[in-house]
Design a protein around this nucleic acid. Structure first.
Lengths: 339, 339
DNA sequence: TTGTACGCGTTATCAA
DNA sequence: TTGATAACGCGTACAA
C-alpha cells in the first residue's frame, strides 16, 4: 500500500500539501493540485484510516456491539437494519462487532470500537450488568448508548421498554377473556428480558387475586423446539390450560405445532400470544397474536440522541417505550373455559 | 482514556517496559512486573488497538460487507452468526459494515474496510456485478472473498451454491409426484438468486417436455405479503394449480395464509415448497418443505480459505456447494391432480 | 533487565 | 501558497 509520503515525493511536494488537498482545508494552487492528483492516480494511493483517526480523534462512524448468539433473533434483526438505515440517512457508517460470550469480551468489543475512534458506541448488552455499563460510560468521553436496559446513573444513555408492563397487559387481556388456566413459557432465564416478562405474568395474576401455579410456568430457551417441548410437558403432566403466553414468537410457533399434533386447535381450544411480532406473525395460520416491542422507535430515539450529542441540537428525553399488544386469530374474542 | 505513557510514569518505568510486558516479548523483572500491573489497574488502562495496528500493520480483524436491505433475511442471519462464531474460534474479530443501496456504496464499504487495514474482507454482494468484483479483487493485495457468486477470473475467491440446480430438483420432485400445474413465485428479479431459481424451474419443465406457462409464474418481492398476493392473483385469474414453488420461505408462509383464506389446504389441495429452510419451517403448520441452502458450509469454507491465505496452510478447492431438498408435511407423498 | 530513539501514516500548527 | 515539525499511542531495534 502506498503512503502519502510516496505520493508527495512523486508530485514533488511535501506531505503537508497532499494532506491539505485531501482534507480540503487550506490553500493549494491549481498547478500543484493537478500534479498531486496525478501522483495519487499513479500510486493507487488510499489514505490509511487508522493513521487518520489516530491523528484526528474522529472517524465518522458509529459502533454497535452485540453478541453473536443474538444475531439470528428477530429483535436484533430489526435493531440492526433500523440502525443502519437511520445512520445511512445521517451520512455515517454503522460498524458492528461481536460481543461474543462473556462480559469481559463484551467490554473488549466496546473498547475496540472506542479505540478505532468511533464517534459513539451503541451497546445491546447480553452479559454486562447495568452497573458495569454505568461504570464504563463514566470512564469514557465518547457517548455510549445502551439499548434495552434501564441504567442507574446515566439514565439518558439507556433506552428500554417495559417488558414487565407489556407482559402484564397481555396476561390481563387473557384474564379479561375469562381464562383462568394460563400457561407461561419463559425465555432463557439468564436474560433480564425473560425475567421481566415472567414477572409481568405473575403480577397480573396476583393483581387479580389468583395464585401463581408453578406447574403452569414452563422453562423455555427462546427456540421453537423449546416451545414445542413446553407444551408437550404440559400435556404429559395433564395440566389443564386454556391459554398460553409464550415469551417470544418462535416459541409460540413451536407451541402451535405441538398443540396441533395433540389435536388441539388454536384458538378454538387454546388461546395463544407471543412476543416480538416477527414479520411472519400475521401470515401464520392461525395468525399469531403478539406483543410488539417498539424496537424501531427505540433505535430511532437512541440515534437521534446520539446525533444531538455529537452535532449539537435538541436532546429529547424519552427513555421508556411501551409495547403494543397486537391481537390476531390466535386470541378469540370470548371466554372459553369461563366459570 | 489513559495511555501507555501515563502507566509508565505511574510505575516509574519507560513506555518500552510496559509494552514489553504486555506483548510478552522480552524480559521484565518480577518486581517491575508487579509495579506495572498495579499502575495499569489504577489507571484503568487499556491498550489502544488503533495505535497498535498502525504500528504493527496487522489488525486481527476481518471485514464483512452486506447491504442493510438484507439484514433481516434468514440467509444473512445465518451467514452473520456463522461467520462471527467461526472467526471467534480463530481469535479474530468480525466487523460488519453496511453496503447500502448501490454498487458505488458497496464498493466504498469494501474500500473503507481495506483502509481500516482489515486483514481480509468478505463481501455478500447485492449490487456489484461479478465483473466488478473480479476487478476489485485484482486491484487489492488483501484477500477479498465473495459469497454467493461464481466469479470469472478469481474462482478461488468466490463461493456459491447452485440455486438453479436446486430449484430444478425441487421442481422435478413435484413433477415426479404427478403435478403438472406448478405455480412459481419469484423473488425480486433484480437479484441473481431470484433469476437462478426461476431458471431452474423453467429448465425442469422443459426437461420434461412441458411448456412454460407464464400465467403460472408470479412476481414476488421476497416478503410474506407478496407471497400472499401472488396466490390471490392466481386465484383471481382462475388459473388451476396443484403445487406452488415459492422462491423463499417467507413468501411460502404468505402463500399458505392466502390458500387457507380461500379454504384450500396444504398439502391436501396444494403442495408447497419454499427456499432457505428458516428455523421455524419445521414447526409451521403444516410443516413447510424447503430447499436448504448450505450457508454454514459455505461460510466455513470461505473462512477456512481466508485463514489459509493469511496464516498459510492447505488451501481446499471446493467452490460449489449444493442445496438439500427437505420434505415435510407440505409435500404429500402421492399425485393429486394426476391425470 | 531496562531505557532511548525512531517508525507507523496521518493531521495540524506554525513560520516562511 | 508551501514546508518543516510536532503530535497521536504504540512496537521495537539497539544500546546501556
Amino acid at each position: 500500500m502506498s503512503t502519502m509520503k510516496e505520493v508527495a515525493m512523486k508530485a514533488g511536494v511535501s506531505k503537508a500539501t497532499v494532506s491539505r488537498l485531501l482534507s480540503g482545508k487550506g490553500y493549494v494552487s491549481e498547478a500543484t493540485k493537478a500534479a498531486v492528483y496525478q501522483a495519487i492516480e499513479e500510486a493507487g494511493y488510499r489514505p490509511n484510516l487508522l493513521a487518520r483517526n489516530l491523528a484526528t480523534n474522529k472517524s465518522q462512524c458509529i459502533g454497535l456491539v452485540a453478541t453473536n448468539t443474538l444475531y439470528n433473533g428477530s429483535y436484533f434483526n430489526e435493531l440492526l437494519s433500523q440502525a443502519a438505515k437511520k445512520l445511512e440517512a445521517n451520512g455515517r457508517q454503522l460498524i458492528l462487532v461481536d460481543g461474543k460470550h462473556s462480559a469481559e469480551e463484551e467490554q473488549q468489543a466496546i473498547q475496540f470500537l472506542l479505540d478505532l475512534r468511533c464517534d459513539a458506541v451503541i451497546v445491546y448488552p447480553r452479559f454486562l450488568t447495568v452497573d458495569a455499563m454505568d461504570s464504563i460510560i463514566s470512564q469514557h468521553k465518547q457517548p455510549i448508548m445502551v439499548v434495552n436496559r434501564k441504567l442507574r446513573s446515566h439514565q439518558s444513555h439507556g433506552i428500554f421498554c417495559d417488558h414487565k408492563g407489556s407482559s402484564f397487559q397481555a396476561t390481563r387481556h387473557l384474564l379479561a377473556q375469562g381464562h383462568r388456566d394460563i400457561a407461561f413459557i419463559t425465555g432463557s432465564l439468564d436474560s433480564p428480558t425473560a425475567i421481566e416478562r415472567l414477572s409481568g405474568y405473575k403480577a397480573a395474576l396476583e393483581a387479580q387475586g389468583l395464585p401463581i401455579r408453578e406447574e403452569l410456568v414452563i422453562k423455555g430457551k427462546w427456540t421453537p423446539a423449546s416451545g414445542a417441548a413446553a407444551v408437550e410437558s404440559l400435556l404429559a403432566a395433564n395440566t389443564p390450560f386454556s391459554a398460553i403466553l409464550a415469551s417470544n414468537d418462535d416459541m409460540a410457533i413451536g407451541a402451535m405445532k405441538a398443540l396441533h399434533a395433540a389435536k388441539l386447535s388454536v384458538p378454538e381450544d387454546v388461546s395463544l400470544i407471543g412476543f416480538d411480532n416477527i414479520p411472519t406473525a400475521p401470515f401464520l395460520q392461525p395468525a399469531l397474536s403478539s406483543v410488539k416491542d417498539p424496537v424501531s422507535g427505540m433505535v430511532n430515539e437512541v440515534i437521534n440522541r446520539l446525533i444531538s450529542m455529537l452535532d449539537g441540537g435538541y436532546l429529547s428525553q424519552n427513555n421508556a417505550f411501551s409495547s403494543e399488544l397486537i391481537l390476531r386469530d390466535s386470541v378469540a374474542p370470548g371466554p372459553y373455559f369461563g366459570q
